[in-house]
Design a protein around this nucleic acid. Structure first.
Lengths: 339, 339
DNA sequence: TTGTAAGCGTTATCAA
DNA sequence: TTGATAACGCTTACAA
């Protein structure tokens, strides 16, 4: 900012007190007598005083901001989590910084901390290199890093996540209930932690139901995209024997799959039952509407933000709260049918 | 930040120069002899020095950040513009702050400036109250506000926008080419500036083509959502005489419309041709795939960011560049067909 | 080309 | 409960 308004000194003069008292009134009103407090507040009002954040941050040795690191800002899935995060910090006086890990270089990334640009970080990217994470952790002694949605196995940083395994199991249970026993899975990106959890949930559920896991029917999506689903559909089409149902690692995969099948004249749910994961907005209006596992993205964001806010105010995360699991919900729609 | 690294003084000692020289080396390398520059850089490397942004900002009387105000962070449309913005600032040393105007109160909003939290603003929300905008403009003498995507009529702030009228005209021309003459329009939210432009484009195109604008066929969507489209579909179904094609104010409206029509046994494109606006990711995989007007959202963000960055470095926006129009593109797909 | 030193606008310590 | 005052870590005249 260029246009500079009144400074604390002017307020002090106006109120007939010292700058220290003005400062106290604004940050620790209890330390000040009611009379002075009123006088100061009136002077603030009259002068239109606004605190200078840079000065405050310098003096308090803080950044006054938290950083949200996303793997892909253009992905609506992440931006909805971001929305939840933002809603929490909107009422604090911390600013929310964002950065996309997509194009970012390693040293830039850790620079965010060493630069004193952020007092804490919310990581939406479980794929962050361990070296970077280590450096982040080093420069933030009190563990001011929280994972949301994704996380990094082998680290003990607090994280907020959906019940991915449970979701997969609900999906399979639903398909079994509809009479399916030949069930496939289209996974997400191979090294993604969500992919692994959902796959593990799928396998556990299949075993529990006494169903055979056919390796050819468990295909690698490569990523969570529409194209991944379309690609998988082509693989299934070429098989001699196909499953009657597939559980997909994401809604986009599911929609890409259905869309490609449709092009080839194969109908969902008549020829194939399909379950997605996420419940993105369009799922309800897709043709057919998509049966899926709903993740509460806003809540993921809100919880992560609340956790970080707690840490910043000195509250340590209790050991049993280190992993906060958010329930998911099976939403039955038109893409699944009895066999 | 708590963990405090080396300060500029330590680097100076290490390099055997004054703090002023270190500062100069880092921000104005040209003012320093090559020999000293190398010594300083080596000292920076050795000590692991990182600048303290708060101190720098205080001294330079700046915020070191720009603010992006979005009407709805959860909306993928906006977050993709945000992605473009972020990519530009990632290489500057300005941070990108975000705030959602959705829940924000007026005084909080202007507070972002008076607080010296941001050196400039990119506004994605044309619906911002004029009072707020005025106050923003007052506290930012050099017009460090840029509109992206939406804008506020009657203000002369720089803006970057898609060619909404042109897009509407392309849509109508396409439908006419397919033999349609009974064409309706499902508009977006009534007071939205994009809605008005697209409606104006629709009307102009219809007149140019010598076609009648049937008032009943121009319906108010209320917003840009799927539900708005579904709601409009119900209205059309009840009509005695219907158009053979509709141009929609957004892809979501178009998909909601198609989805609802499908439920009622009315087929797109056989019974209805539908054109959307935006070309969101799913448009290509929707069933039927959606003919639409593609907006380059990333470019909108990039241009807005570049414009603001220019203003922050003192370059005024040339009068003829005050409105930067980004071309849109008709994407022909499966939701439109010859009559 | 480099160094000295005076702030930038707060907050926190200490004393009153 | 309040006030003086010394930092916080950097940049930038001005001087050398």
């Amino acid at each position: 900012m260029n246009a500079k308004g009144p400074r604390i000194q002017e307020v002090a003069v106006e109120a007939g007190v010292s700058t220290a008292t003005v400062s106290r009134t604004l940050s620790n009103p209890d330390l000040v007598s009611e009379k002075t407090r009123e006088a100061v507040l009136a002077a603030v009002e009259k002068t239109g005083y606004r605190i200078n954040r840079a000065a405050q941050n310098l003096r308090k040795r803080q950044a006054g901001a938290i950083l949200v690191l996303l793997p892909n800002l253009g992905n609506p899935f992440f931006s909805q989590i971001l929305s939840g995060i933002e809603s929490v910090f909107a009422t604090s006086d911390l600013s929310v910084l964002i950065a996309d890990t997509n194009g970012i270089k390693q040293d830039q990334l850790t620079g965010y901390f060493r630069d004193t640009r952020a007092d804490g970080v919310i990581l939406l990217d479980g794929g962050i290199p361990r070296a970077v994470l280590n450096e982040l952790a080093q420069t933030t002694p009190d563990n001011r890093i929280v994972f949301a949605c994704e996380w990094k196995p082998g680290t003990d940083l607090p994280s907020v996540r959906s019940d991915n395994r449970g979701g997969a199991q609900q999906a399979i249970a639903h398909l079994v209930q509809l009479g399916h026993s030949k069930i496939g899975h289209i996974a997400g990106p191979r090294n993604n932690v969500l992919t692994k959890e959902r796959l593990a949930g799928f396998e556990a559920a299949m075993r529990n139901q006494g169903l055979e896991i056919v390796p050819r029917w468990v295909v690698d999506g490569g990523d969570f995209s529409l194209d991944a689903g379309a690609q998988a559909a082509r693989q299934f089409i070429e098989m001699d024997e196909r499953p009657t149902a597939v559980f997909c690692g994401s809604d986009l995969i599911a929609m890409g799959f259905i869309s490609e099948m449709h092009k080839r004249g194969i109908s969902v749910p008549n020829d194939f039952s399909v379950v997605g994961f996420d419940d993105i907005e369009i799922a309800d209006r897709f043709i057919p509407s998509l049966t899926t596992i709903r993740q509460n993205r806003t809540q993921l964001g809100v919880l992560a933000a609340t956790t970080l806010l707690g840490q910043l105010s000195g509250r340590a995360v209790a050991a049993q709260d280190n992993v906060q699991l958010v329930d998911v919900l099976l939403i039955k729609r038109g893409s699944t049918a009895a066999i």
